[in-house]
Amino acid sequence: MTSQRGNWPLWEVFLRSRNGMHHQHVGSLHAVDAEMALENARDVYTRRGEGVSIWAVPSVAIVASDPADKESLFTPALDKIYRHPTFYEIPDGVANI
């Protein structure tokens, strides 16, 4: 990451809330380099013990889907209710399924 004066790159911050959990996005911040991004993330996002681990990722490295494509991307999954276990009726008297 290179930065010009007054135009520090943006970083996305991810926190692992507890041992063993996924990192989750919590927000973003500006920093001149990776080291400062971690330091700033610690100060900005973990003042109340929100995390046990930080990931800082340059925002330019994030590839995002366009919200306008929401329908074509995600609605095909909605009518496939048979992908959920609750779709299947388990007869009375059958346990552990």
Binding site: G20, H22, Y82, R83, P85, F87, Y88, E89, I90, V94
Partner: peptide, 27 residues
């Protein structure tokens, strides 16, 4: 191992559908 454990949690949720569809066929 964190990444394996997390993958397994996701997989197990989906496997539940697999087992039920099998039992449904058997019924």
């Amino acid at each position: 191992y964190g990444p394996y454990a997390r993958a397994m949690v996701r997989i197990c949720k989906e496997e539940s559908f697999h087992q039920r569809q099998g039992f449904d066929i058997m019924v």
